[in-house]
Simulated assay, not measured.
Amino acid sequence: MDVTSGRAPGTMELVALGDSLTEGVGDPHGRRLHGWIHHLTQPPAPWRLSANLARTGARAAHVRREQLATAVALAPAVATCVVGVNDVLDRRFDAGRFAVEYEALVGGLREAAHVGVLAMTLHDLSEGLPLTRRARTSLRSRTAAANKVIEEVAGAHGAWLLEAREAVAFRGAGMLSVDRLHPNRRGHRYLAACAAEVLRGEGRVQHTAGPPAADPLGLRLRATGGHLRWLARHLAGSPR
C-alpha cells in the first residue's frame, strides 16, 4: 500500500461522464460538490478519479458531443457513464433517438477504457416529485423505455451495470435531497456502495464498505442548508 495516498500500487485512472447525479448535486462540500463518484474513488479504492466531466442538465446527446472526446483522449482504465434523467424528464422523449446517442456513447467508451465501463439504470424518478397521477404514469413509462435501452446497450458492449431499479426507494430510506430529485449525501454514499459492489462482483474490488448509516441530525441539517444554497446559486429553480 502507498503510505502517502493509502492506495495500492498500480492504481488505475477513472473518468466519469454524465449529468448532475455524477457531478454530485445533492452532496455539497463547501462551495464544491462531492457525489457518489467522489466516494467511490476514495482510498483504498483501486481507482483514481482523473476527471469528472459530468455536468448538470446533460442529456445523452450532450454527453456524447461534449464529454466523450475528452474521455477517449484520457484513455482511462475505467469510465463511468450515468445519463438519461434529463432525457426522460422531457415529455418529448424519443426512445429511438436516445438509443442512437447512448449506443455511440457507450460503444466509444468501451473502446477507450481498457478495463471496463460502468453504466447505471435510472431509478423511479417520480417517487419524490409532486406529480399528478397521469404525469407520474407517463414519466415511469419514459423511464422504463430508457432503462430498456441502457440494459440492452450495456449488455451488447459488455459494460458493467448498476441496477438502480433494484435500489431501495431513496425517499423512504431518507436518502433524497430537498429538491426531491437528487440523492442527499447519504444517498450518494449509498450509490457509491452499490457501484463498489458491482465492481466487487466483477472481480475489480476486493472489499466493500456496505450501505452507509444515517448521518447525525446536525450533519443532515447542515447538508440540507448547503444543498439549498447550491440550488439557489446554480439551478435557479430549474429542474435538473
Rank of each mutant, 00 (worst) to 15 (best):
L131H: 00
L131G: 07
T132E: 00
T132L: 00
R133T: 14
R133P: 02
R134N: 05
A135N: 12
A135H: 13
R136G: 07
R136E: 15
S138I: 10
R140L: 04
S141P: 02
R142N: 07
A145Y: 01
A145D: 14
A145F: 02
A146L: 09
A146N: 09
A146M: 11
A146Y: 06
K148I: 03
K148R: 15
I150R: 11
E151R: 15
E152Q: 14
A154H: 10
G155T: 06
H157P: 02
G158E: 01
A159R: 00
A159Y: 04
W160L: 15
L161Q: 04
E163D: 15
E163K: 13
A164P: 05
R165M: 10
E166A: 15
A167L: 13
A169Y: 02
A169V: 10
R171P: 03
G172A: 10
A173T: 12
G174K: 08
G174R: 01
G174V: 03
M175G: 02
S177E: 07
S177A: 15
V178L: 11
V178P: 00
V178Y: 01
R180M: 08
H182E: 11
H182K: 03
N184I: 09
R185W: 02
G187S: 04
H188D: 11
L191F: 13
C194M: 14
C194Y: 05
C194N: 06
A196F: 00
E197V: 00
E197Y: 03
R200L: 02
R200T: 02
G201Y: 06
G201W: 07
G201E: 11
R204K: 12
V205H: 08
H207N: 05
H207S: 13
T208S: 00
A209F: 02
A209E: 14
G210Q: 00
G210V: 01
P211I: 10
P212D: 06
P212S: 06
A214C: 05
D215M: 13
P216Y: 04
